[in-house]
């Protein structure tokens, strides 16, 4: 379990996170939602160990994050940041291979091939990363993060993804989240920052709504995804319907002009 207690974080005297508590269990897919500047990425960096908070603590499997060194932490959690700029030309497969640089994997060749087939990047393996499209680059980076925790281990592990689908087409987005559904069954907990509310509604187990560094709602999906919560978080009228096929929440934002008329009416 990842446990974050009372996280407070300042950037240049501006408080970007206030008293955040969260838990991520294995087998759980947790989605973080919130408007721009809500502090999602700061929270992400603190959870991944990249940034340290002055107040508050993060523990992985009951052990404080500070007690892990980088190599040890890499065995327990894998991270995909928003975007990665390569400084030198590498082949797509070389990028994926790097995910295993500190991992004791018994059959790296097999793991890499399996992951790249699953993420639909195997056909790109001999292409230079710089020549790929935005969505393809994201899939290659996703593969790199995925291969790091691909081989099953007896201890609980975690995958942290910051807007992994931002450049992907709709089919690739759903394939990625579907892959995550399979992955969480392997003693892995997953935390994803998303902007697409419907993706979150379809695949998440639990949600955290963040706004201006504060938690608006935190809990199981059906409790958190309500019209009031979403309005409070995004300052925008959003209806929550039922998906006709899955019965899961379906997010329907209202167009701006309706929003206007309502404001006029109420005024």
């Amino acid at each position: 379990m990842i446990k974050a207690d009372n996280i407070n974080f300042w950037i240049k005297n501006r408080r970007v996170l206030e008293n955040i508590y969260l838990q991520l269990n294995v087998g759980e897919l947790k989605v973080v939602l919130g408007p721009n500047g809500a502090g999602k990425s700061s929270l992400f960096k603190i959870l991944s160990g990249e940034a340290t908070c002055k107040l508050g603590a993060v523990a992985y499997n009951g052990r404080n994050l500070q007690q892990y060194n980088a190599a040890h932490l890499a065995m327990v959690r894998s991270v995909m940041p928003q975007s990665s700029q390569l400084s030198f030309p590498f082949f797509a497969k070389e990028v994926v291979e790097m995910g295993l640089m500190n991992i004791n994997n018994h059959n790296p060749t097999y793991s890499i091939q399996e992951v790249m087939l699953q993420t639909n990047t195997w056909h790109l393996k001999n292409q230079l990363y710089g020549n790929l499209s935005g969505g393809e680059k994201q899939r290659v980076q996703f593969s790199r993060a995925l291969v790091q925790i691909w081989e099953e281990k007896p201890y609980p592990r975690y995958l942290l993804l910051d807007e992994p689908t931002s450049s992907m087409d709709i089919s690739q987005q759903h394939q990625l989240l579907h892959l995550l559904l399979g992955l969480k069954k392997r003693n892995i907990g997953i935390l994803v920052i998303l902007h697409d509310l419907n993706l979150a509604a379809l695949y998440a187990d639990s949600l955290i709504l963040l706004k201006e560094g504060k938690v608006i709602a935190n809990g199981v999906k059906d409790e958190v995804l309500t019209a009031e919560n979403l309005f409070q978080t995004f300052d925008y009228p959003i209806e929550v319907l039922r998906h006709p096929v899955t019965g899961k929440p379906l997010i329907a934002p209202q167009p701006v002009h309706t929003n206007f008329q309502q404001t006029i009416k109420s005024a």
Binding site: K45, L73, A74, P81, V95, M98
Partner: peptide, 20 residues
């Protein structure tokens, strides 16, 4: 190893277990 990791990014290198 570390230099390969850094080629992807400093944060990424750290994520992959490099003491940057």
């Amino acid at each position: 190893k570390g230099l390969n990791g850094i080629a992807i990014g400093e944060a990424e290198a750290y994520h992959m277990g490099i003491n940057v």
